[in-house]
Design a protein around this nucleic acid. Structure first.
Lengths: 158, 158
DNA sequence: CACTCTGGTTTCATCTTGAAACCACTTTGA
DNA sequence: TCAAAGTGGTTTCAAGATGAAACCAGAGTG
């Protein structure tokens, strides 16, 4: 295990997500996978991450079901890391982070990459939180129900 | 600074987001703020985080414009930490993490908290990535444009 | 006015990270 | 075919980050 404290057993889904992908590198690895990276060396060069840490993260992410390994698509004997359905389910998280940064973290004239619809070159609409009946909701319109009161931390298994 | 490596200067908005809120505790602190926490002690007790680390994180997050401090709402001389507009802009990120966990990280019968529309008690719809003309898009329908080629890391300022 | 609470800072042992060296196996290329 | 280079790691070690506990100043309470 990578972390000292596990949040897995709290009732909060946000905490459980962060327990899996909340460390410093995981979401960047996943972002690179969405951008097409598959091989160990592609992740390593793309991120500038240490090999030891990358090996450890990929091992964890495979174990957690975010990535799976398969034979290399170029016919060589090497392996590739590809996102599972669970991993691909993080796409909205990545998009939300991207949109937040575009709105709040870039100067108007600053160079940035952007995400577009591949077919038509058209850009992505802003993510919106809506109720099931379609009304757009701000944070202040929402409430968490059924919170577990125990917020004490538990030791991660060795 | 908390981190050894800064990703701020990469062109990728995702990297820049993670540079600000990508560490182990920040998103949990922000989640607690969305859930109503305002005082130092509320964050500390809710998270089980060390006081030193919490003080450091709150300082960083204020510096980065995610939180601001204001006089306590109960009339005492203490201060409170409240989310700025920038911080509130992270709401879709939190919702995306929550939905991903609900889908992929919980057993069907497992106890969890849930997010609902406060007015009508109705739950939140699934976030969807769409093009500006309204079509729902999967990851494979999209592409990143204008990536900066330099992915080398830079030292964080001391 | 003594006592407690709040919101920290400091200190220190422990854990994690980054960098580099090293290694076995695969591929390339002369 | 055989040496060199590339891939995908592991090991080692110094430096940085974390968690726990002790400590402290200022605010609130009786």
């Amino acid at each position: 295990m990578v972390k000292r404290v596990s949040l897995w057993n709290e009732g909060c889904p946000v905490a459980r997500s962060l327990d899996v992908i909340g460390d410093w590198w995981s979401l960047l690895i996943i972002r690179d996978a969405f951008d097409g990276a598959r091989r160990f060396s592609e992740f390593q060069q793309g991120l500038g991450i240490g090999k030891g840490v990358l090996a450890s993260r990929l091992r964890d992410l495979v174990e957690r079901g975010i990535f799976e390994t398969c034979p290399a698509s170029d016919g060589t004997a090497y392996r590739e890391y590809v996102l599972t359905a669970t991993g691909r389910g993080l796409f909205p998280v990545i998009v939300a982070l991207r949109q937040w940064a575009e709105d709040c973290l870039f100067a108007p004239d600053e160079h940035r990459s952007s995400l577009v619809d591949k077919e038509r070159g058209v850009s992505i609409a802003r993510l919106e939180v809506r109720s099931v009946d379609g009304r757009a909701l701000a944070w202040s319109d929402t409430q968490v129900r059924g919170v577990v009161t125990s917020k004490r931390k538990t030791r991660a298994p060795a």
